[in-house]
Design a binder for these strands. Sequence first.
DNA 1: ACGTCCTTTCCTGATT
DNA 2: GAATCAGGAAAGGACG
Length: 372
Amino acid sequence: MAGPYEISNILSNYINAMYQPEESSSVPDLLTHLGDEDNLGVALPNTQVPAETTGGPAWYSELPNCWSKAQVLEWISYHIEKNKYDASTIDFSCCNMDGYTLCHYSRDQLGLIFGPLGDELYDRLHEITSVSDELDWIIGLLEKEEVSSQDALLDPSPLELGSSCTQESLEEMKLASPFFQADLGYVSGAMSPGSSDVSIAGTAMSLSPHSQDSGGSDLDLDLTEMKSFRFSDGELHKKADLKHGKRKRGRPRKLSKENRDCLEAKKSKHAARGTHLWEFIRDILIHPELNEGLLKWEDRREGVFKFLRSEAVAQLWGQKKKNSSMTYEKLSRAMRYYYKREILERVDGRRLVYKFGKNSSGWKEEEVQDRS
DNA sequence: ACGTCCTTTCCTGATT
DNA sequence: GAATCAGGAAAGGACG
């Protein structure tokens, strides 16, 4: 029976992956996406570190905030070399800074110090930060799953929707959830003992994402807030009042007003742009650590992939977009829009199978691996 | 203010 | 019959 222990293992794996790259071949994927000019702002693995460095340079296994002066220098040197930049134009006395300081420089400030390379350094630095935030988000999900799966056993209201939600809406969500078992509530790993994908996916039903998005500040309802809902009707109604009279995104749902208010209370403004659906899917596929049983490559060279747990992926996407009502049906509609833009190609006759199109990028092995 | 992009939501009908 | 696919339509949020 899967449960918190399994989730702890997943967490441990992530932490190991984050901080012990030399012990895991998959680790570099997590922090080495920089230097990839074609990745549309989304993490791509293995693109920043020289291929010959199996363990990676000193800066490569740590977050920029924690870099020493030497690591900062090494990172800068790497990018000078990578970009074939004329280092003679840089005043290296200005590079005498630790990672914390580096992270606090604006794009303009880096531009003043490094000239044209400043933009590149700024972008690469913030890509690292964003991918670590992405991992924080996943880890946050896992942590909350650990809590919520425990709560589910104790609490008859696993979704923590607050008292203003109707029983009807609760039932609706239970029915919609691939993780709900009538007798047990939301059970981590119920669908696939021994695999972590369900743990990840199951997390998606906890309505308290520790989410990062490119929006950053639009992290609307965190765990604390959700708990305050649970304990304070007043707070919930305040939230609902704020949204009162404002329609939800997309075509209006055919829900009762109560349900609508309930859902709106959980959501705030839509996540900013930054990670598109196809990039989200791609990143799950190219990060085996994140992809445990959610999606799989059918033909890696051709970019053909299959949803193994369509609803779980949809829930995960919904979590990312702070939309607890996301379903595979809706997600697949968005996927189908990509056909027209040739980000995806149709794969006829095969259910749950899609193929990356010519306007997608960042999934090919040669892109994912060594671009240096 | 407006247009565009990118979904999100709902829907009907077809296919598996 | 359920799940999935296909695609039209309408709508909203973010952004330029």
